[in-house]
Nucleic acid binder design. Sequence first.
DNA 1: GCTTATCGTCTGCCCGCGCATATCATCTGT
DNA 2: ACAGATGATATGCGCGGGCAGACGATAAGC
Lengths: 152, 152
Amino acid sequence: MAAAREPRRDLAAMLVPLGRALTAAELPLLAEHGLSMWAYAVLLRLEAEPLRSQAALAESIGADKTRIIEVLTALESRGLISRTPDPADRRVRLLALTPEGSRVRDAAQSAIQSREDRLLAHYLPPTQRTPFLTALATLSALPPESLTDPDL
Amino acid sequence: MAAAREPRRDLAAMLVPLGRALTAAELPLLAEHGLSMWAYAVLLRLEAEPLRSQAALAESIGADKTRIIEVLTALESRGLISRTPDPADRRVRLLALTPEGSRVRDAAQSAIQSREDRLLAHYLPPTQRTPFLTALATLSALPPESLTDPDL
DNA sequence: GCTTATCGTCTGCCCGCGCATATCATCTGT
DNA sequence: ACAGATGATATGCGCGGGCAGACGATAAGC
């Protein structure tokens, strides 16, 4: 038997439902800005500095590149992103956030994070909030292969 | 503009991919014990003391009651759970973990949590681990409606 | 005894996701 | 100049999850 440890629930058993609930809480806030979750993920990922290639964008946000096409088309048509052929290789698209896109992204994120701040303030003591967020930021920044490494 | 806050990512944006990666990391460990994720969720939820009704079980683990039937049938046929009509109301099934079910559940959970302990030890400083787990336990214990409360 | 409701089981449907394939335009290497 | 590869786009398919409805057995209330 492994060394005794304090009884606790599995990390995934705690993280998955929590993530799902917080995602559900985001949806109405995003809807207020006319955004789907995928659209919001795109806005979070892009910046004024152009990102090279839709395939790279899809990969970095965990989306299917064939499914992201219409999300980008809708965002572009609303003027929230720009999508231009790379002069160096006209197969490739350069993607960038527009000022309007920054504004919408910031407004949505502000609403979401204000709500999250109130949630954390309501349910966690101050001494736990910063370590919790720091640890969560650390773990979520790890590449997935570090997290699923079988030799860990 | 809301009061300035330290820049951070949205909670869901950190929690969802982390939960997904840790779920993926669990799958091979569960497979070693012949368990699917739903089967494991059932074993985690049940105990020697019978739980009254399959519908209640399904609801408490977030499963579709019509989909859980075959999971229970497979677990019962392996002798990991018992499933008996309630003498007080023979429509209802009483569900309980068997000693063998406890053993398999404990072995799987031990493998999972040992791995999680190593992950946390590897990537988080000691001062962050306990507050992180405590906060996570607190938040994940909240009913979903507290987390999605629009008036928060 | 009859009506209504509930539990468990089975089946169907829809949707989103993941993956695959095909096509066109474009690029690279020979 | 040509063959092969790549990026973007469109489409199809299978699977899992969520939900609904139907059915048989059982229970509760009148």
